Computed example of a mutant assay.
Amino acid sequence: MRTVTNYFLVNLAFAEASMSAFNTAINFAYAVHNEWYFGLVYCRFHNFFPIAAVFASIYSMTAIALDRYMAIIHPLQQRLSSTETRAVIGVIWLLALLLAFPQYYYSSTALLPGRTVCYIDWPEYTAVDFKKIYYVCVTLLIYFLPLCIMGCAYMAVGVTLWASEIPGDSSDHYREQLIAKRKVVKMMIVVVCTFAVCWLPYHVYFLLHQFFPDLFEQRYIQQVYLAVMWLAMSSTMYNPIIYCCLNSR
């Protein structure tokens, strides 16, 4: 079980389970009641951790895609060792925490008439619109860039694995290996597609919010936000089901 792919799957599962445990229920309570009950410290964590967890999730998937690419397209090259794999996971989390740090740093709470809110107090009156640049960078780094990398890697792997049929006179060991490789790649393609579908509306919503703020004065925009947030958070629920159905281990 201590394979490179499984190390990254464990990291992916840890990131998504953590977000489910620490953010999903809190998000729901805050969205429904529109009041923050949990104090400044948790407000900062609440805004900070999802960005880090999503970054760790998507780059774990990217690392799996690149590992599958190297194993199938360049089978004679040396694979990552266990130590190197853990080091890559550590780098992924370090970069995730750095990317999410602005959301921690600028998080604040405010007492409004009759309620308390948790929000991100972005700096104003600067030469550049830091908030807009940050959200564009987040969308590129945790959505479009990794999906492009994974798309290219799995396309090359898919052509290699499915373009040629299994020879009729091949050994049972060869046939079993090829079928096992196909199963792993199928599973990861389903995981990546699920992530892409769940998170696309979320990123589109926040990009539109930055560039077309007038759209967000409509009557039912809060319901739209709840639907988009629910779909994004629900992505953490699907992977265990996918693993169970498509991976016998």
Rank of each mutant, 00 (worst) to 15 (best):
T109L: 07
G114T: 08
A127C: 07
T160R: 14
L66D: 07
R79T: 01
S107I: 10
P102I: 07
L99G: 01
Y143R: 04
L147Q: 10
I64D: 11
V136I: 14
A163G: 02
Y143A: 02
P102M: 08
E84A: 10
Y135L: 10
T85E: 03
Y154L: 10
S81I: 10
K132H: 08
A96K: 03
L99M: 15
W162V: 01
L40W: 06
L147C: 12
F101K: 02
L66W: 14
V54I: 13
P146C: 11
Y106E: 09
Q103A: 15
E124D: 09
M150Q: 14
N47L: 07
V157W: 10
G158K: 01
M150F: 05
P75Y: 08
T109E: 12
A56D: 04
S57W: 01
V159N: 09
R68M: 06
L141C: 14
T62P: 13
V157K: 08
V91G: 01
S107R: 09
L97W: 03
T160K: 15
R44G: 09
F48I: 00
M61T: 08
V128Y: 09
V88F: 07
P113T: 05
I51V: 15
L99D: 03
L95Y: 11
I92A: 01
P102W: 10
T85V: 08
T62S: 14
Y135D: 01
Y143F: 15
V41S: 06
A71M: 11
C118M: 11
P123R: 02
A110R: 15
L95V: 14
N47A: 04
C148T: 13
P146Q: 06
V117F: 03
L140H: 03
S60N: 05
K131C: 11
Y69T: 00
W93K: 05
P146T: 04
V54M: 05
K132Q: 12
P123I: 01
L145P: 06
Y106H: 14
L97Q: 00
